[in-house]
Write a protein that binds this DNA or RNA. Sequence first.
DNA 1: AACGGAGACCTTTTT
DNA 2: GGTCTCCGTT
Length: 783
Amino acid sequence: MNSDPFDFSDVGPAPKATPPAQQAPWLSGLNPAQREAVERLDGPVLVLAGAGTGKTRVLTTRIAHMIATGKAHPGEVLAVTFTNKAAREMRERVERLLGRPAAGMALGTFHSISARWLREHAELVGLKSSFTILDTDDQIRLLKQLIKAADIDEKRWPARMLAGLIDRWKNKALTPDRVPQGEGFNFADGRGLELYAQYQARLKVLNACDFGDLLLHMITIFQHHGDILTRYQNRYRRLLVDEYQDTNVAQYLWLRLLAQRPDDQPRNICCVGDDDQSIYGWRGAEVGNILRFESDFPGAHIVRLEQNYRSTGHILGAASSLIAANSGRLGKTLWTDAGSGDKITICGVWDALEEARTVGDRVEALQRSGHSLAEMAVLVRAGFQTREFEERMITLGIPYRVVGGPRFYERAEIRDALAYLRVLVQPDDDLAFERILNVPKRGLGPAAMQAINRLARLEDIPMSRAAAMLTDSEELRPQARRSLALFLEDFRRWREDLDHLDHPTLTEQILEDSGYIEMWQKDKSPDAEGRLDNLREMVSAMRDFDTLPGFLEHISLVMENQEASGVEKLSIMTLHAAKGLEFDTVFLPGWEEGVFPNQRAIDEGGLESLEEERRLAYVGLTRAKKRAIILFAANRQIFGQWQSSLPSRFIEDLDAKHVDTLNAQGLYSGQEGSMASGAWGGFQAMTPNRPVGRVGHAPAIVMRAEGTAHNPIGAVAAPSASANQGATSPSKAGWSAAACRKPKPPALPKETGCFTTNSAMARSCQWMATSWWSCLNIPEKNA
DNA sequence: AACGGAGACCTTTTT
DNA sequence: GGTCTCCGTT
């Protein structure tokens, strides 16, 4: 919150004298490895911390230790995490250990810390301190404009693609002048770089930057202004980095610059990470950073944390056997002295509907036997998979929350409201201006927008100024001109109010005066009420901030879905979002080829991304303390098309001695009647509640393949179609769907499914014979 | 200018 | 199946 990084006024009294180390209460209960990681304060340290080995504890205790013993002043500590949640948690734990606030400590994400610093030095990169942080949405809109202006076909070269390209460059700390000519990236026949440069120039005019710029600008400043770098180096003598395996090149450079010390002084940098949990390669993370640590920081000490305190033996064993299939690991051997516990469960189901039903039933059963919903989680590969579970939980009345779902500030109404505020504090913000010019509708459509844009470009001025000029000209139709004048007049008035109204009140007034509230009140779609609620929530959240700019900064970096009630809820989230969390029970649905591992990862990234998928699976399994249930469905709808699917290869990686196949009771039940006939025997034979002996008849599958059967898959589609009828509309975006939803005839199988395509068929049959069998053939336990 | 229907995309994962 | 964009109609 404090914007001056060199302001020591809030750091409190100097720490007390050093107590004898052996009496330090915070050290008790640490195992020897943990203790070393905490106490070795001088020189570079790399802590290789396996899943559940007390990584956060080590990190927080280390900070508390150095402060409490007087080895470091809180103001010298710079601790970086990847998520705001991790940062928050870490601060809380440090302060709990210390028994007092650790004021002055820089603890936050790479991005939030950079943003704070950049506000100090914005002018050095051509920005004003009041710069706006654009989110992806703004970024795309801006790029779209540039692409259009460059006369490039938007269809062939979508803005998203360019955004991804620029992002990758920024992740590698490549400013436009540094992108190598031969860089293999192609966009619009080699015009990508040109557009990148234009984009950066445009950002400067808008007084804005994107996420990547936050780091990149700081790196540029550090590299060009040695005096500033030295100030930061001298201030932050204690660097700590969480999740080091996830750092990208830019973050790595950022850290290296800060960790640089004169030769006679130790580089007190402590990085904590786990190469087996590196799951952000797609976003530019370089596992190489962690693998290279020793050579980067000569004299580095490496501490391995291998005792796992989280999971029971079978879970750990299964996870270890899975990750062992990867190559190029630093290698750790996790162990636990907790009991072996339950084996992990693998459960095959017919389709996604049954998958959700199975999970729901299990959740209810656990709940009945006294388990808390807060200790259960459903972890999916990709965001879209959450829907089936949401719908099921709604039907069952099980409270749930989708963690890391659409962010609060990404909702349209919040973005609209924010756009008003952005224009208010920074009239140059064209993106915000454009967004609200005709929201709510005030007769300023495309024609007016175009006129403003043309003039703005011609005169090289912000749109708000161009708009003001247009109210004095004959260019717009009288009606539009009047409307525009009123719009600008509103802003003039609101700016006057800035001085004598507190910002939540002013915001309310703006939303009221502008007709924005009214717009939603008149809206008859079912979620209009929710949007008004969100706006109210936003206004009340503003009260926590002293200033409007402070709030805007916060919301663009941090704002998350806030948990209103204290009701215990089942967590549903992606595997990525689950990193760092733990639950007694973890459900892992969708373990099918194409879903997990993800098809794109298989197609594009080669072995490397396949291994990343496997690490993701490893992360998923190791979230479980006591129970892990893996599910896979034989059929799944993808893009509205039914596809047959095969169990994930990761299932096969699991050491059988840690695995149980589900008590197959009720597997496919309820649908059996409709599916009993036809050429469908092969699949049916595989239901584990059939005699195991029949399972092995591979020919049955071939039969099915040749059966060109509309029958079997028609039967699949039926239940799902009827489910659509009854399903409560999901929380988001359900408006028109709810109204026009009608029963549809069962979808026909897609001809290119793996049973009709030659190569796919061959492959699938092989899979059937090997992997699917082997996992279902495991002797059943408890019938 | 506003609305509604048809058609093309689409799905990783996120600060 | 969903969402977004374009284009036609009022």
